[in-house]
Design a protein around this nucleic acid. Structure first.
Lengths: 245, 245
DNA sequence: CACTCAATGTAATCATCGATTACATTCGAA
DNA sequence: TTCGAATGTAATCGATGATTACATTGAGTG
């Protein structure tokens, strides 16, 4: 009631509702019909524009053409709104990764691992804002979302499977699989997060080229794993508890 | 004037000022003397307790025992306060990294690189909250701080120097130095960020052990660089990363 | 020693935000 | 048609970041 004219509801709202109306249950009549989805979209747009910090429940409501209190019915808290966005984003990432692995060269675990890393990175670089939301668990209520937990587990299980498979084939044989897993994950995550956190530009590897550079890093890493597996005249040596300097 | 009794000024404030008075310039008399530093400390404590998101200018002022508007003289904006904290944190990280490299085995670039990575990680794991502040450039006004920019440049220059040096020695000879640099950085950054973002616990590598696991990853990576430089399949087994269950 | 003034903190204020409640409207099923 | 559940509105609360006018201090100047 401050400055904003309160009457746009019956105009904009209805239009949006009609347009996107795959009719959730009944019809998309008055009550905006699908506020929930529109709010998620608006939030995504906000993240896109100013990062996760810029997300405001009120602004999302404003863009949806509803009152500031309206989102409360669907998302009782800002975190729950962000969680819903993360749910959507996780789903897309999950699908992208699995699709890439599925269409990778069959029977080649390391190729699949490479495809997985590339897909993850490409998605993160193409959707840095979505990635920012899914990667920072401070922003969301991670454990409350069945689907986020499940899909993340599936992605990790896939990676574990690929690493184990690679070992069976003798590749990366003398490398601790747990370490290999952590390394793979950290490398890809680091590349993605550096971009989101703004550490890449100053590095001289910019936008378009950063994907290229990042994929080169993945290749380097996978090549390293391959090299490590070759029976290079060195017997599998006993491990040593590392001695700290 | 809501619920909090406004009159604690002349009691708490003065006490705090007296207590912490290493006298910045003159004496630590009335004007709190060193509000600026106390505010930075309070902010660090807040980050420690609830992450960067939990930082509130008012709460910092409250802890310093001054009025909500007092910080304005020193930090006109929340971001400027966070930037000051990041300055302090960057300085500590910078020193830790350089000290580690300085005391590493001389004339061994890869050993130095390893020491650098370890020091970075150890610092990040020991001070996750400080790291969260310095790593997310959304939180601070990066370019406005001479010292942050300079010390970051110095750290990167050091890394570049080490990689170049390693190449001169024939190690990692067939690897693009730019890629190696990016990979090194991404790996360490990823490990640190995963911890901060809460991705490590669920992975089965917990607190105390996560440092160990992360350092094993660094070892694996450095070993890979070494292997890459050697003529194909004759890698003398340097050290083995620990293999866990 | 007294005065003045820049530095520094206080008080008060504004707009915005997240959260929450009481109330109103609409839809849809009995 | 009626009535209840869903859903949005309005109003409110406490807290926040920011900013201003004002007060106080203490250090330097004469």
């Amino acid at each position: 009631m401050t400055t904003r004219p309160r009457s746009s509801r019956s105009s904009k709202a209805k239009v949006a509702a009609k347009k996107a109306g795959p009719r959730k249950k009944g019809r998309a009549g008055y009550h905006h019909g699908n506020l929930r989805e529109v709010l998620i979209e608006a939030t995504l747009a906000l993240v896109e524009e100013g990062g996760p910090e810029a997300v405001t429940v009120r602004e999302a409501a404003r863009r949806a053409g509803v009152s500031p209190g309206a989102p409360f019915r669907h998302f009782p808290t800002r975190t729950s709104l962000m969680t819903a966005v993360a749910e959507e984003a996780t789903h897309r990432l999950h699908d992208a990764v699995f699709a890439a692995v599925a269409s990778s060269e069959a029977d080649d675990p390391l190729a699949a691992l490479r495809a997985m890393g590339r897909a993850y990175l490409r998605w993160a670089y193409a959707n840095p804002t979505h990635f920012a939301v899914v990667s920072d668990r401070r922003l969301i209520d991670y454990d409350s979302s069945q689907s986020i937990v499940r899909e993340n587990r599936e992605m990790q299980a896939l990676m574990v499977r690929l690493v184990i498979e690679a070992r069976k084939r003798g590749l990366a044989a003398d490398i601790d699989p747990a370490v290999a897993r952590l390394a793979s994950r950290a490398l890809v995550y680091g590349l993605a997060r550096m971009r989101v956190d703004g550490h890449l530009p100053q590095w001289g590897v910019q936008d378009a080229r950063s994907t290229e550079a990042a994929e080169a890093v993945i290749d380097l890493f996978i090549d390293g794993l391959m090299r490590a597996g070759r029976p290079a005249a060195s017997a599998p040596p006993r491990r040593r508890p590392r001695s700290g300097p």
